Every structure is written in structure tokens, then in C-alpha cells.
Computed example of a mutant assay.
Amino acid sequence: MHHDQGIHLRSVCKTYRGRGADVEALRDMNLDCAPGSFTALIGPSGCGKSTAMRIALGLEDYDTGEVRIAGHPPAAATASGVTGVAFQDAALLPWRTVARNIALPLEVLGRDPAKHGHEIAKLIDLVGLKGYETALPGQLSGGMRQRVSIARSLITEPEVLFMDEPFGALDQIRRRQMNVELQRIWMESGSTALLVTHGIDEAAFLADYVVVMHANPGRVVEIIEVPFERPRRNELYSAPAFHALCDRIAKVLHGE
């Protein structure tokens, strides 16, 4: 079997055992993200979308089912740098420069950042932070910190990129600019991407497939294919076909 760079969850179940009631976080969760595709996971709070991502990262166990990330068990994929991660909180180390924050995953994997100066410089350029190499996080805006976070998630040249609400803290105008940027960066990286988001417009703009979840129990209710060609531009946000797709996603999301 050839090496599959995709994300695969098969019949994954996860229940949190409580003192009173058990909470069925995921029931029979199936997710297949083809290599090089971009999938958005959307659903109400408590629908298990972040749980699914944490399971895919090997940060959390599951009761039954099977998970393969680029052909590896989740924890192994994360530990070997096959997986890149960007969360809503950029979680940068305040005492490290931009360049040294981006280098962090290399150090974790025991690689010498000094040998990767070219890759670090290339990523800084890619995320539009040329000239800020030696800046500290405290000197950057929220949007710039997120760019550092995304560059850091790409430094190991991951086959799979996981993002949990990376632009959740930004205002809508900024977020839309960042979505255009993220699309460009992702297209250049060639990685398989999974984005957890609350934003219907963000999901529709970025993804090839929007996976809609419902809560209690956390489960996938529909997978909606996004028909727009790439690269998608800012004008797409005002196109009637875009609004129609967002309305369709909203209907499924709200159980109509």
C-alpha cells in the first residue's frame, strides 16, 4: 500500500465518564481527508470537533475505532513532525524572537535549527513577516502572532496540518485577509489540512469539504462539497453562490 498522507478516522467512539451522566463526545465518527485536501469541521460547542482533533493529534485516547494520520498512529505522527498544529492561542514563547519561535518544533524533534536557517527565512517570507525575524511576540499584533504560529506549524514540512480556530480572536476583516493568506500558504505547502472553526463563511471559503457535526452525541451529520475554484479571492465573499452555500451549511448546522 502506498504511503497515504491523508487523515482517517474510522468508527471512532469516545465517552467521557462522569460521576452523574456519561457524555458521549463522539459516536461512530468517520472522517476521510484525502491527501492534499482541505477539510473544515464545523458544529456547535460540545459537538466533539475539538475532541476529534485532539484524538487525531494523539493528545487524547478513544474508546473504539481506528485512527491513521499519514499512515501513522496519531501520537507517532505528532512525535515525528509529520503533523503541524496551529491553535487559536498562538502560544508563542515571549522571550524568543519570531525566528526562534518558528524553530521550536525542530528543537523538540532534536534537529539543529542552525541548519534550517534557509527554511525558517523562507517561511517568514511566506507568512509575510520579512523584517520581523528578531522581533519578540510582545511587539507584534494578534494577526502577526498568528502568522508566526502558522509558520511554526509548517517548519517540519508536515504532511498534515491541524488548525483549531486559528483566527478566532481576530475581527472579521482581518480574518478574511488571513483566510486568503492561509489558502495561499496551504496551497504552496501541499499538506492535508483540517480546520476546526465556528465560522461558516471561513469554512466555505477555505475548504474543499465542510463536515458538519451535531452534539449529544457528537457525530457527523453531513459532508458538503465546496465547488469554488482555487485560488479563491476576496470577491468570493460577496458572490451569490457563496451566500447560497453558506445558507445551506447553516441549515444543516441548525438541524433544519
Rank of each mutant, 00 (worst) to 15 (best):
M213G: 11
I223Q: 14
H243E: 04
T78K: 11
H2Q: 11
S191E: 05
A79S: 11
R230M: 04
E202P: 00
Y209N: 13
T156W: 06
Q88G: 09
G117Q: 15
K49Q: 05
L194R: 02
Y132G: 01
S80M: 13
G6R: 10
R100P: 00
E225T: 08
M178F: 10
S50F: 12
A250Y: 07
A204E: 02
S189L: 06
G71A: 13
V196D: 01
R17H: 14
R184K: 15
V226F: 11
T192I: 12
L109F: 13
K115T: 14
H116V: 01
G65H: 09
A241L: 07
E235Q: 10
V210C: 09
G168I: 03
D171M: 11
L129K: 07
S189C: 05
L136Q: 08
G218M: 08
R176V: 00
I42Q: 07
A135W: 03
M213N: 09
L57Y: 04
V12E: 04
V196P: 00
Y209T: 13
M187G: 02
P73N: 12
I200Y: 06
A90W: 02
Y132P: 00
A151W: 04
E60S: 15
H254C: 02
T197N: 14
R10A: 14
G84M: 10
V212P: 02
R174I: 12
T64L: 14
P74I: 11
A135M: 05
S153R: 00
R230L: 06
V108K: 02
H198P: 03
I69S: 10
E225F: 02
A86C: 15
W95H: 11
G71R: 13
R54Q: 06
G84N: 08
L253Y: 07
G199C: 07
D28S: 13
V252G: 06
T51K: 05
I7V: 14
A207H: 01
A21V: 13
Y62E: 01
R174F: 07
S149L: 08
R68Y: 09
I249D: 02
F162H: 11
E181H: 07
H243L: 12
N101F: 06
K251H: 08
L9E: 00
F87K: 03
A77D: 06
T134S: 15
P240M: 12
F205W: 06
H2F: 08
I224L: 15
S50P: 04
I102T: 06
H116E: 11
F242P: 00
L31P: 00
Q146G: 04
M163P: 00
I120E: 01
A90Y: 12
R174M: 15
T192E: 11
V23K: 07
F228E: 08
G190I: 04
R17N: 09
S37Q: 10
G142A: 15
I124L: 11
L136S: 03
L9D: 00
L194Y: 03
D32P: 00
G142L: 15
R175M: 05
D208K: 01
R68P: 01
R184Y: 08
S238G: 01
M29C: 14
S50G: 09
G128N: 03
C246T: 01
G81A: 13
N234E: 14
Q172L: 13
M1D: 08
C33K: 03
A21M: 12
G142C: 14
